[in-house]
Write a protein that binds this DNA or RNA. Structure first.
Lengths: 164, 164
DNA sequence: GGCGGATATTTCGCACGCTAAATAATGCCG
DNA sequence: CGGCATTATTTAGCGTGCGAAATATCCGCC
């Protein structure tokens, strides 16, 4: 659930930035989902299929890390994909705790079937900016992200020391 | 599910921007959730409680619109909140299709208990930018969002006309 | 060799979140 | 007045998404 667009009329810079971010994020998810629907996949399933196609087999943990989700979430996604015969699980021989996720022929066919990224719209939007604007955007957004990350880490450390 | 950070090494501008957006969005949700947890609420519940506190009673549709979710989703959230005695439903007298959602005393107390926005971290991060950077960020992000919106609307119109 | 702590995955229970279909009430139009 | 499209909400079914606990291995160390 996105945080609320709290103030009704005058929006602060923070609110405007947040609103844009929420909009862009939501839209990127919606686009993925839409694209996926055409191949009878869900958004996450499309993401997984494309990831495996491009990178090759991945352990479940590697996969979760890449799609930024918890292992338990990905277990569910893979369960359903296995049921649909899109991927298979294969126990690693070196480390029997590890499970590799592999595309099946059907999964690979589907991956190829799907044009490219749903990111084309974003690419288009970014291309409508001037080169210097793109550079600024990348630079500033990156700065904000790093700054937030620092603050979060600091607070996490604090509450850890309080808790523990 | 966030779109994948596709390329392993060299990241395009699009990817970098998207990655930052995904990070910031995810983080803002996490912060809301964290803040909510202290009052034994979920993220969306905190959002609703704060919204009702600041704006007053809202119909279910108005509420869904404001938190950018489907009515059916909000029905569920309100069900659980009603169960916890945080809000009550009240049928409108003018239009008996409409249900107003009202804070209970307990809900109001909780709302007051919770400091402010979880957005403070973002505010801090934005304040670490120079004034001109903030201005640029607001301007450029807004531009990208508007551009994406236009493209999406155009495509929606097209596929509508195709579909019938 | 085996014990104890780490690591990889799964299971469980719950809360979103969405779409499609059902239900209920309005309002308009002839 | 009666029917019919519209609108507000709910229900049903499914797929994430998370945190905590359970399982199965692995690894280092005595």
């Amino acid at each position: 659930m996105p945080p609320p667009p709290v103030s009704p009329e005058i929006k602060s810079d923070v609110d405007q930035v947040l609103e844009a971010i929420i909009y862009l994020y939501t839209e990127s998810r919606r686009l993925t989902k839409e694209l996926a629907r055409r191949a009878d996949l869900t958004g996450p399933q499309l993401t997984v299929v494309k990831m495996l196609e491009q990178i090759g087999d991945l352990s479940l943990s590697e996969l979760s890390e890449r799609i930024r989700a918890q292992n338990s979430t990905v277990t569910g996604i893979i369960d359903r994909m296995e049921r649909e015969n899109l991927v298979s699980r294969e126990r690693s021989k070196e480390d029997r705790r590890v499970v590799y996720i592999k595309l099946t022929a059907k999964g690979r066919r589907l991956a190829e079937e799907i044009p490219v990224e749903p990111m084309e719209i974003f690419r288009g939007a970014l291309e409508s900016l001037s080169a210097s604007e793109v550079r600024d955007l990348v630079k500033i957004l990156g700065k904000v992200a790093r700054r937030v990350q620092q603050t979060v880490q600091r607070e996490t450390a604090e509450s850890d020391s309080v808790k523990g």
